[in-house]
Design a protein around this nucleic acid. Sequence first.
DNA 1: CAATCTTTGTGCACACGTTCACAAACGCAT
DNA 2: ATGCGTTTGTGAACGTGTGCACAAAGATTG
Lengths: 285, 285
Amino acid sequence: MATGRPTHTADRGRPANRGRGIPEATVARLPLYLRALTALSERSVPTVSSEELASAAGVNSAKLRKDFSYLGSYGTRGVGYDVEYLVYQISRELGLTQDWPVVIVGIGNLGHALANYGGFASRGFRVAALLDADPAVVGTSAAGLPVRHMDELEDIVEDEQVSIGVITTPPGAAQQVCDRLVAAGVTSILNFAPTVLSVPDGVDVRKVDLSIELQILAFHEQRKAGEEAEQALAAPAAAKAAASSGPSSEPVVPAAADRPARTAAKLRRAAASGTDGDLPAVMPA
Amino acid sequence: MATGRPTHTADRGRPANRGRGIPEATVARLPLYLRALTALSERSVPTVSSEELASAAGVNSAKLRKDFSYLGSYGTRGVGYDVEYLVYQISRELGLTQDWPVVIVGIGNLGHALANYGGFASRGFRVAALLDADPAVVGTSAAGLPVRHMDELEDIVEDEQVSIGVITTPPGAAQQVCDRLVAAGVTSILNFAPTVLSVPDGVDVRKVDLSIELQILAFHEQRKAGEEAEQALAAPAAAKAAASSGPSSEPVVPAAADRPARTAAKLRRAAASGTDGDLPAVMPA
DNA sequence: CAATCTTTGTGCACACGTTCACAAACGCAT
DNA sequence: ATGCGTTTGTGAACGTGTGCACAAAGATTG
């Protein structure tokens, strides 16, 4: 998911995209490349081709080359990219060569888990403080850090120069916490609460929402079930046609036929719901 | 973030987008609308205009109307949309009117947190089982459910007709777990491990990665710091020009000037790193 | 029933993102 | 030094997503 950057105030007319205007889609992929490159670096691989790296990162090689072209020309034709150099360039571009203190607000199950998360400490991110409003939680510790009270938020943000905040509170408290973070000087927020946050210009918000991800998966799952149901209806006729032709012809049976369990489950599901329920069950008043 | 749907096999030439082809971007927003609508429904609001709903969901109203137009024409001109009816239509479109059993594999801190997550149980999603490979974890319980051993995976997926799996294992185990899930019949995977998963056609993967989100925020944070540094350099001249003109004219001081803490922190940060480090520090061999 | 007001649904233009395909550039062997 | 194989960097075509602006459609009022 990506929350678009906040309409970029003071955007003096740049020549379309050159100079420093790295496309948002590219920025979102740089961490992916960086991870793959770091793995290569640990195996002491000196250079890598766009094809190999693209495969490792799960993207198209042309896309990867274009992405890198926005950073400058760091490859060598006929050879590929220097792994170490690319790691450095991407790290620098992403701002990972500096220290990023982060506060986590809301130390419930999720906040606790994030505090312990390994991927946090790496890449220049450092948990500066854990905060919670609940007196029962304040004073306990998580991941070796004490949970401090919300009232200390402003002081911590100022003292530690925190510019990134992570919200893992219940949805009801999220906007309030967000406002306090912003007022204290935080300009980037990662929101795990299922709430739409409103922030002033110049503050970035990205959201992570388990429920939304599952709903998107469910949509595609339902669509797949519907399609297989259609294919199942069309299959007998096709099979019959195939049987009537010579044995040298390609089998016309749908590819899904070799996955009995999956297909069976989906068909049962498609039968259970209306599959193709184009008729509205209730009309509005 | 969005993992594109797997190139949609059997895509008989549809007239561009009509019939059932809801754009991916629209699908990703439907859960957002649904949440806002559910809140309105609980407050017994009968109808809502695109403007109001768009504001609640944090999107443009024209976009929202276009999104709804893909589902059909469920609004009434001059009035707006019937809240209850829209809730039903979106739920049906997303497949939330049916039951979606889900398995969570990897019951560490994060898996534990997700099992307890409230947004899980709602909207038709049900945790069918918690799985882990570690004998020390198997047998314990989380969120009232027993943690079962990985070896039971295949039986559970078949018995409970699970089609969605959530991976919260360490990165090293993710691909292996993914393969087993797919082999067992799971066709949608939500991956929390920082790994690129490869799956056969017809299987959807979506990923959630804290580290990537933070890196994207860091990039924009760095960019903002650089811009403010530029403005700070240009500001004195502008301020001088403003002072020389009459008191009735608008102040030319940049908007950031009323946020001392934020600006100060960023400038310190910009000074610490190269801000505009266009000169490469090391050249490749 | 006509005039007016509100709000939807969508045509259109534009911005953004993706992919193909190929010339230019480089290493290496002969 | 020349030629050959490899791989980058990017122009161009295409597809997707966004937002404006407005006609059409319904509600409402007199």
